[in-house]
Amino acid sequence: MLLIDCPHCGPRAELEFSYGHEAHIERPKDPDALSDSDWAAYLFLRENPKGVILERWVHSHGCRRWFNVARDTVSYEILAVYPMGAEPPKLEQARYV
């Protein structure tokens, strides 16, 4: 069970949150101009890293606000919580094989 530090409500159990998958995926400004493979990349291709992931969470059973989290997908340690729209913090990448 993760203990997620909601920037508005403080640390709460994972059960109160919903997951929004990878963060910083920008919807293409002009979808009509995109090739099929670029559109597929936007829709489907993901980093899915073993290591630090930047992801979105929403506190569904609390303040119902979205925020970003940087988390290690192996140790599950939450390394940073930062607002939507903000640049991700500079983090040391752990190397896993």
Binding site: S18, T73, V74
Partner: peptide, 13 residues
């Protein structure tokens, strides 16, 4: 689990 993870454990809920 509802979130990406490589830990071979799984979440308690």
């Amino acid at each position: 689990d509802k979130y990406v993870g490589y830990g071979q454990r799984g979440s308690l809920p």
